[in-house]
Design a protein around this nucleic acid. Structure first.
Lengths: 111, 111
DNA sequence: ACGATTGTTCGATAGTCATCGTAGTACGAT
DNA sequence: ATCGTACTACGATGACTATCGAACAATCGT
């Protein structure tokens, strides 16, 4: 069975987390996970990039400790590590998700 | 008189803010501003980089809308735009500053 | 007027990052 | 066994970024 490496909570660094979340595509993934339920396969995210780039972004998120990925057949199910992140960096994830939403609303009302 | 451009609140984008805060040196600046008082000159930040690199980082922070810079003689006084940021992205700045602090504490207790 | 202080500007450079296509792997279904 | 699905690995590429030193600019004291 294939194994996916995840950082232990005490190895999760604010530096990697913020770098990961600085990318709009990765924030889109995080937001969809926050909006919807857990265990969404990578293919459920209709990202405007190629497959290999998509893999790249999911990996960055996993290695930063932001998502958990586990195999289920050929698919990979993705889950936000909200509890871990909230413990380590209280309010951070919520703030970023909220920010993204309000930005979307702002730019929509401008158009 | 020299003028420094600052983005209006409605031009401040989460993308630029997070990219700016993804850099440890820039977070160090933000943290020192949050810890101390407003109006600290650039030279008050003893950064492990050259002068020109320092200028670069302060500019990124200013253009992202995170700090306000204004001339006072030959010096530039820096102030966190906390109120603007809190309005736009509630909780974000606090979360990042808190995160940085707890990370510092964690890594100190490891040593 | 002169010098010291504070920060900027301008290349240059080395490193990182997002992106892609192609080829490959693992698994489920038929 | 074969095929389709879902994702990975690899090498290449172009863009961006942090960094530097050297030269410059603006201001303040003396």
């Amino acid at each position: 069975m294939r194994i996916l490496e995840h950082p232990e909570p005490d190895k999760i660094q604010i530096d990697m987390v913020l770098s990961a979340l600085a990318d709009p595509i990765r924030r889109r993934i995080v937001n969809q996970l926050a909006d919807g339920h857990d265990d969404q396969a990578c293919i459920a995210f209709e990202l405007p990039v190629s497959k290999s780039t998509s893999t790249h972004h999911f990996r960055i998120l996993r290695e930063a400790g932001i998502i958990e990925q586990r195999y289920s057949g050929t698919a990979i199910l993705n889950t936000l590590r909200s509890d871990v992140l909230d413990e380590l960096f209280p309010g951070l994830l919520t703030a970023i998700i909220t920010a993204e939403r309000s930005t979307a609303i702002r730019s929509a009302s401008e158009a």
